[in-house]
């Protein structure tokens, strides 16, 4: 367990930095940015633990989004209606943008002339695209289900 700690810490720190960086892009105020960072660290920590337990990326992302959404909902007295947005910012580092790019680049490769291994290229591209769809679905559902069940206020 302890040998996993440096990796877990690494993922949490860079999850926090990515979430806070995108928080600035989304024009969160300086008071909300530490909450975005904390949500990002929590999300990445839970996802990393899930993946270390041999869960799929989709399953681990779903668990991470659920935990992040519930944790932020518990802080709704402090955060107010912004709690849903903070949870979303925290989950942004889990959005599989790189897989999306790989999938589309793979599809572009399939149409190239003199392609050597078309089947393998196509399968990798389809796998990446499916992973994107399922992971995005997992993150969205993980964020929305607790927010609806716990009746988080939008206003």
């Amino acid at each position: 367990m302890f040998e996993l700690l440096p990796h877990l810490l690494h993922q949490a720190v860079f999850g926090a930095l990515a979430a806070a960086g995108f928080g600035v892009l989304f024009n969160f105020g300086f008071r909300a940015l530490p909450w975005c960072a904390a949500a990002g660290a929590l999300a990445l920590a839970v996802r990393t633990i899930g993946q270390d337990l041999a869960w799929s990326l989709e399953g681990a992302s779903f668990a991470a989004a659920i935990v992040t959404s519930c944790s932020v909902s518990a802080l709704r007295k402090q955060l107010g209606p912004a709690c849903n947005a903070v949870a979303l910012a925290g989950c942004i580092p889990m959005v599989p943008g790189a897989f999306f790019g790989q999938a589309l680049l793979g599809f572009l490769s399939v149409t190239a002339p003199n392609l050597v291994d078309a089947e393998a290229t196509l399968i990798v591209a389809v796998q990446s695209l499916l992973r994107v769809i399922f992971t995005l679905g997992a993150i969205g559902a993980g964020l929305l289900i607790p927010a609806h069940l716990l009746r988080n206020q939008d206003f």
């Binding site: 990515a18 960086g21 580092p93």
Partner: peptide
């Protein structure tokens, strides 16, 4: 208020590099 463009650019740069480490 909005964050200055250079602050946003730097923050996004850090976010991309952090994303990179996660990848």
């Amino acid at each position: 208020p909005r964050h200055p463009a250079w602050v946003v650019a730097l923050a996004v740069g850090i976010a991309c590099a952090s994303f990179g480490r996660l990848l």
